[in-house]
Amino acid sequence: MSSHRAAAPSPDEVLTAALDIGGTKIAGALVTPDGELVHRVRRATPARESAEVLLGAVYEVVSGLAAHPSWEHVRALGIGSAGPVDLTHGTVSPVNIPAWRDFPLAASVEAHPALAHRRVVLAGDAVAMTAAEHRHGAARGYGDALCLVVSTGVGAGLVLNGRVHHGLTGNAGHFGHISVDFDGEPCPCGARGCLEGIASGTAITRHALSLGWRSSPASDASPDAAAVAAAARAGETAALAAFDRAARALAAGIAATAALVEIDLAVVGGGVAQSGEVLFGPLEHHLRRYATMPFLRRLRAVPAELGSDAGLVGAAVLAEVGAPVEVGALVDGSR
């Protein structure tokens, strides 16, 4: 299936609303039980504005969804938000949205008049992507898996024993902040040598530039991982080295996670994964070097299937099942 095409719901089909909130966009959709997007609303995130302005933008998206004729069939709304999140209190503190620190996003969204008598469920965006790939994508049928988002940052979620694993506060799977280089560069999180600082699209571009790669003079766009990938496909040494370094870091992190919780599948999505064989070729090579224990021999990395819609589809999946934390279940800051 593909979640990219719009579908007309049957007159009595129950739908789920979903929000995907990040540093650049706030997306919303009505989603069928099969993961099809019926109606979309999107606006830019006013990331440098006040908390109130940001919430107003979220409300605009919710109102746009509620204006659709199928809204009467919506029973719940799921939110996948950039993190960290705190599901115990229903709050978010996205690194790329400075005005939201311990912001009560779940309760604030539930207060929208259109959501009266509808369940609201909050999750981290990478966990939402994991729920989508597990229900409808590349991790279908797997009881245990790791699902990665490799883009301007690196996030992930875990499927354990057939269920998406959220952790105590909803932050399980913070894959980008596994340290893979003890003497590496300082990370904004406070640690050193974090995987995100080596394998993200930003890090790939930065490393390629440090090795002497330069984007085409004919290009008006700023250098990015897509341009580095194009150069790598053309055989440019610096670009190939930057992707090899990123793939090695990802392989080390995937193998370490697999050794800890015994998974045999890693699903890799996000913008960097669109690089294709430039990433997956060296990733497979390095995975074989790090995943050497007998119980890891089946471990493999595969591309995600749902693309940029995964966050919306996954937020809807989590809202359908009422997990991990419903706003109505939050009483005096406890579950």
Rank of each mutant, 00 (worst) to 15 (best):
173 G>I: 06
252 A>T: 15
69 P>D: 09
258 A>I: 01
55 L>H: 12
144 D>S: 11
97 I>V: 13
69 P>S: 07
123 A>Q: 07
237 T>V: 13
51 A>W: 04
211 L>A: 14
153 G>Q: 12
234 A>M: 11
193 G>H: 03
332 D>T: 15
256 A>Y: 01
275 S>I: 09
91 T>E: 01
3 S>C: 12
162 G>C: 08
65 L>D: 02
121 V>H: 04
335 R>H: 15
221 A>E: 10
273 A>F: 07
65 L>S: 09
335 R>D: 11
259 A>I: 00
7 A>I: 13
23 G>Q: 09
9 P>S: 10
253 G>C: 07
51 A>T: 13
255 A>I: 01
118 R>Q: 03
263 I>Y: 02
176 G>P: 08
273 A>Q: 04
149 V>Q: 06
231 A>Q: 03
324 P>C: 08
292 T>S: 09
259 A>H: 07
180 V>L: 08
209 L>E: 13
72 E>R: 15
41 V>K: 08
190 G>C: 10
189 C>E: 03
301 A>Y: 05
79 I>G: 08
2 S>T: 15
151 S>W: 05
237 T>M: 04
156 A>L: 07
37 L>C: 12
327 V>M: 07
67 A>K: 06
274 Q>Y: 09
59 Y>K: 03
22 G>R: 05
268 V>N: 00
273 A>P: 05
248 R>W: 10
67 A>M: 06
207 H>G: 12
188 P>S: 05
208 A>M: 09
54 L>A: 12
305 E>T: 15
161 N>E: 14
196 E>G: 10
322 G>K: 00
142 Y>S: 09
281 G>Q: 01
164 V>N: 09
138 A>R: 00
183 D>V: 10
293 M>L: 13
63 S>T: 15
317 V>G: 05
31 V>M: 02
165 H>D: 07
259 A>S: 14
245 R>I: 08
153 G>W: 04
304 A>M: 02
116 A>H: 13
223 P>H: 11
166 H>C: 07
70 S>Q: 12
206 R>N: 09
334 S>W: 14
193 G>I: 05
92 V>Q: 01
332 D>I: 13
113 P>A: 13
232 A>D: 06
329 A>F: 08
119 R>M: 06
333 G>I: 10
262 E>K: 11
315 A>P: 01
159 V>G: 06
82 A>I: 03
153 G>M: 08
258 A>M: 00
324 P>I: 04
129 M>Y: 14
88 T>G: 15
9 P>N: 10
143 G>D: 12
200 S>M: 01
217 P>L: 12
108 S>V: 15
335 R>C: 13
278 V>W: 07
23 G>W: 04
230 A>Y: 00
35 G>L: 02
238 A>P: 04
224 D>H: 06
171 N>G: 11
243 F>C: 02
282 P>F: 05
49 E>D: 15
93 S>M: 10
303 P>C: 10
76 A>H: 02
335 R>M: 11
209 L>W: 06
136 H>D: 04
252 A>S: 14
281 G>M: 02
302 V>M: 02
131 A>C: 02
134 H>V: 04
275 S>A: 15
266 A>H: 03
131 A>P: 03
80 G>H: 03
259 A>R: 02
109 V>M: 04
93 S>E: 01
78 G>V: 05
100 W>C: 09
174 H>R: 11
206 R>I: 12
304 A>H: 00
292 T>L: 06
73 H>A: 15
270 G>K: 01
248 R>G: 14
229 A>V: 05
58 V>G: 03
39 H>G: 05
155 G>V: 08
